[in-house]
Design a protein around this nucleic acid. Structure first.
Lengths: 238, 238
DNA sequence: TACACCAAGTGACTATTGTCACATCCAAGC
DNA sequence: GCTTGGATGTGACAATAGTCACTTGGTGTA
């Protein structure tokens, strides 16, 4: 982890605007807001494997992911690892602990070279006070997160492993992707931690679907060949 | 469902202050804020079984529960019912759909005679504009909700039925309750929908614990006799 | 090229939990 | 008291998914 020289801020201003415009719920920030985010934030770079956020730490900052990809995961008290989400550029991270003053419930780990804009609690409060729309934006980000969490609970509870894996694969799929490529090429163990199944079970399920031409698994990369069928499976009765 | 006569507002003002002060994250509202909530909101009463919020509806209002108790639940596309939470007076409900303009993902059903303060989107936006602290309060409410959801995911994923049921029982337990009584006396089927287990499995687990003196089940009411042991079970390795 | 390592594939077995089918029990009313 | 419907208790069985123990494959490096 390395703090990028402040002088870079001039360069990064445009970049931030671009990233937010593309992906984020912060897309509609006006120039003054962007300027303040940049002015009061710090750009930090993380190597693959570095933690942007560490479970158990006090949560005194908020991050906006600028480039790279990160995994949000937590270790239950019995050692079980659970992957909650994968974050893309534009994503806001770490709001929960910042807002309620509690510990970080999950870790966020860079899965490749990643840069983020870090905003301390003090800076965050100033920005919130100065730009009233920021609060509303954050509220939307969080509404989104709750929906995702509820969908996860629904999937875990109501569906058996097949439909569930289908759902997680669809969640990883890019809308207009050529050849059904996924946003991230996860190993089968990682897929297991994400979908809540053992590696072996993932393997068997993928093999079955591969035979039926629903997905392909080549050199460790899963592709969705038949999006429609996979969607049907995701909503199957059991 | 019945809208209470506006004249009641004078009476309810004190009541609202009292309720919020006791239970809610809105406890620190000042008088002007409370007055605005009451002025722009509608008091509505619900009979047992009425829906305060219905899954699938457009979400154009926010509720604050004033008295009674309600269950937040959703029906998955395969018909499986999942109870997400039980709401007490002071709880804010329905923020998610209000904020992101989406459908209501879950229903909220009165499980006894219940009253709530309903605030429309327009009124909500005015209040938010006028009282800057309201946004921050809502942010905290939502942070809380995300933590609860993550805890649920963690529990569902990492633990077997025993520890899981223990967790849900503890979630229903009142801190200083005499005799370990729960906040709500749920039937075993309802407990099942809450903890994600079949009614029969709930029954067997409770029987076992009952023999060990950890809980008691008399006339359909569960009480926690040995809080410490139950907590241990909730964090057991499997 | 050979070694090392880690991801992936697979068979056999086990464990946990759900399902089905009843028997009971109990509280509310008639 | 009697009836009745819903909540409970319980045994037997089935199904889903995890675990264990390997084998196989692929990639990077000495």
């Amino acid at each position: 982890m390395q703090v990028i020289w402040d002088g870079t801020k001039l360069v990064k201003a445009d970049e931030l605007a671009g990233i937010l415009a593309e992906h984020s719920l912060f897309a509609d920030c006006d120039e003054a807001e962007l300027a303040d985010l940049i002015l009061r934030g710090h750009f930090v770079q993380y190597e693959k494997g570095d933690d942007l956020i560490m479970q158990g730490d006090p949560g005194n900052s908020l991050l906006i992911l600028l480039s790279g990809n990160a995994r949000t995961s937590l270790i239950a008290s019995n050692g079980h690892e659970i992957v909650l989400d994968y974050a893309e550029p534009g994503q806001v991270l770490g709001e929960i602990a910042l807002l309620d003053g509690g510990e970080r419930t999950a870790s966020v780990t860079a899965i490749e070279l990643t840069t983020a804009l870090t905003i301390t609690r003090a800076a965050f409060e100033e920005i919130l006070k100065k730009h009233k729309n920021m609060a509303l934006r954050l509220l939307k980000v969080m509404a989104n997160r709750i929906r995702t969490a509820n969908t996860m609970i629904e999937g875990d509870r109501a569906y058996t492993s097949g439909p569930r894996l289908a759902r997680y694969l669809l969640r990883l799929s890019v809308v207009g992707a050529e050849e059904g490529r996924l946003k991230l090429d996860l190993s089968q163990s990682e897929l297991g931690n994400f979908a809540g199944m053992s590696r072996e079970h993932i393997n068997r399920q993928l093999s079955t679907w591969s035979e039926d031409g629903i997905v392909s698994v080549e050199s460790g990369k899963v592709r969705i060949l038949n999006h429609a069928t996979l969607s049907n499976i995701a909503n199957a009765d059991s």
